[in-house]
Amino acid sequence: MATLARAQTVAVHRPRFRLRISRVLFLTIAAIFTAVALAPFILTVSGSFKTKSEILDWPPTIIPTVIQWQNYVEVWTNSHFFPQWIANSIFLAGFHLIAYIAICSAAGYAFARMNFPGASVIFIAILGSIMIPGQVLWVPKFLILNQIGLVDNLFGIALPNLADVFGVFFMTQFFKSLPKELEEAASIDGASTFRTFRQIILPNAYPALAALAILQFQGSWNAFQWPLIVVRSPEHLTLPLGLASFQGLFGVNWNWVLAGAMFNAVPIILLVIFFQKYFIRSAASSAIKG
């Protein structure tokens, strides 16, 4: 009996002791990861407030001695097209969201609910195309745009991005999870398929549509490779392209680069903080897909 009691205390005590050591260890590693992940952003914020001379100091200061908004004002007013770049990026994101969601939800609904010849063939062909890296299609997509006269045009950026598989896959999965009774009631009332879709199905799909919209906004707002191929003229650049063009041609003005970068990074960071669960779920769903 006594041995049993002793064995029990050992069994209770040992894991607690171990847990405490591993807790300190885990917290230390976690703190290091956090510092490495956040330091570049924190230094960017601090750098964006530094004066032109302080940003060149060695060793660099972590907290600016004089904090001034000058860089933000200058990047907005002195670099001719900066407001235009932001407007272009907002336009592209808005157009992409509306068109992409309309197209993908309609197609997803057809795949989820309508049995039509060719459905499975199309679906399999599509899943195969996921394997193809985007860069392989740069040349042919550019040549197609060249034929239809959309090179150096914002729609040349936007239209090819609508040819995407993820959204349809995502919406198909979602519509399959909706109860069939929704449509059955509507069809008894004599509503057409399109009316059922618009008035009954879509309002029930808001959570999925919101998740898709947030993920797509991130992609569109951050896009670099394809816009770089399509547009040339300074007034047609998007914000990421404009920022990238800050360095290279004329000697780098890091004050402007850092302040300009904030305009691109802050909206996305806020979005992720407020809608964390969508991003985390999407990574999880990509795990299921694989």
């Binding site: 956040l38 951050n222 990421p240 920022l243 990238a244 970068a261 960071i269 964390q276």
Partner: peptide, 24 residues
């Protein structure tokens, strides 16, 4: 907090992170 802090480098655009690191 850790989860969101570690995830932030993944959500900023490649242009922004590249420019920041060019500076660093």
């Amino acid at each position: 907090f850790f989860r969101i802090a570690w995830y932030l480098p993944c959500v900023a655009s490649s242009v922004v992170t590249t420019l920041i690191f060019m500076w660093l």
